[in-house]
């Protein structure tokens, strides 16, 4: 049976090229294994082969991310990899960021299992833990003989398509991904048990630590609203009749941009709502309740606002993940900026 091909990424230091004075070396590729790759090969065993090692100086990578990444991806591709290991980087910050960056790029480009390892305080952890399996390591290379067997073991399971177990079982840093399972007792029984412990002052473990939200600071007031170009953005699910882009009623994965050019109001003949989280009856009759085009046109005529752009941006807010919502905002705000929009009215429901 042909051995599965593993490619390994390390920095100048672990390649034995040199320390800080060699941190500016550009990417290079070598056949076979080097330095920590020896330990990796040992843990992987006979069915897998570390076929190549790619190396880059930490400073070079940090200062030339795009060039370095492109060059490294090309070198990695030449080895026809089945899997990819970066590091481990322990507590080396620049190295951690490089390992995370290249590992994620390899996964995106080649769709193969990738893995890295870091100390929990390495800045690369927060940047990449949601995207990658990062084995939890000690804070220095002295931990290599403990870390590498964990990396090897998890990589093999990934390559064999086995179910990846919990962070504790596999030794990776929790990725913050919520995965379903069937507990032994129902939620009510677990809840009562947790309450009894909490009241008694005994230790208990919450099943979901509270999330952190990034709050957006309010922007300064619009200087001259009478000259301002205004756009409406809504999470109220208003779409053209028939919902041409098939935006979901809940947990939206897309948004739409629709024309209001030449319209004085939102006619129920032209627009509908597909939002699954509120009583739609009133809005079905009068979509202006959510996209207040009637009032805005009047303000436009009276000169109270400069002008309204000729479209609105819309999605369904109910159940839509923050990840998706953030993605939508990042995309359409570019268009708003390009179209010289000064201010946006966000309507929710």
């Amino acid at each position: 049976m042909e051995k599965k091909r593993v490619v390994h990424y390390i920095n100048n230091f672990f390649a034995g090229i040199g320390g800080e004075e060699k941190a500016d070396i550009p990417p290079e590729s070598r056949p076979g294994r080097i330095g920590p790759g020896m330990a990796l090969a040992e843990v992987l065993g006979d069915k897998y082969e570390v076929v190549g090692t790619v190396i880059c100086g930490d400073s070079y990578f940090g200062e030339n991310i795009e060039v370095a990444q492109e060059k490294l991806l090309s070198m990695i591709g030449d080895f026809k990899p089945d899997a990819f290991v970066a590091g481990p980087a322990f507590n080396a910050g620049r190295y951690g960021v490089a390992c995370g960056t290249i590992a994620r790029a390899v996964e995106q480009k080649f769709s193969i299992p990738v893995i890295t390892g870091m100390y929990e305080e390495n800045p690369g952890v927060d940047m990449f833990k949601k995207d990658l399996y990062i084995i939890r390591t000690g804070n220095s290379a002295a931990d290599m003989r403990v870390a590498m067997p964990k990396i090897g073991a998890l990589l093999k399971r990934m390559m064999e398509g086995e179910e990846i177990l919990s962070p504790e079982a596999e030794g990776y840093i929790p990725r913050g991904i919520r995965v379903n399972y069937f507990a032994d007792q129902n939620g009510a029984a677990r809840g009562v048990e947790m309450l009894v412990k909490k009241m008694a002052g005994e230790a208990y473990v919450t099943e979901y630590p509270m999330p952190v939200f990034d709050r957006v600071d309010p922007q300064p007031a619009v200087k001259n609203i009478k000259k301002a170009r205004i756009a409406v953005v809504t999470s109220g699910g208003i779409v053209p009749q028939g919902n041409p882009d098939r935006i979901e009623s809940s947990s939206a994965t897309k948004y739409g941009i629709y024309s209001i050019e030449g319209m004085d109001m939102m006619s129920p003949n032209d627009f509908m709502t597909i939002h699954g989280g509120y009583d739609r009856a009133f809005v079905t009759e009068n979509p202006n309740l959510v996209v207040p085009l009637d009032a805005l046109r009047q303000l436009e005529r009276e000169g109270e606002i400069g002008e309204l752009v000729n479209y609105f941006v819309t999605t369904t807010g109910t159940g839509t993940s923050i990840g998706n919502a953030k993605g939508f905002g990042e995309q359409f705000s570019k268009k708003l900026v390009e179209d010289k929009v000064d201010a946006v009215i966000l309507t929710s429901t």
């Binding site: 929790p174 990725r175 991904i177 919520r178 379903n180 399972y181 069937f182 129902n186 939620g187 979901y208």
Partner: peptide
Amino acid sequence: GYNCLAARGY
């Protein structure tokens, strides 16, 4: 809490 289904962090 009627069901046994639960989620945990991975």
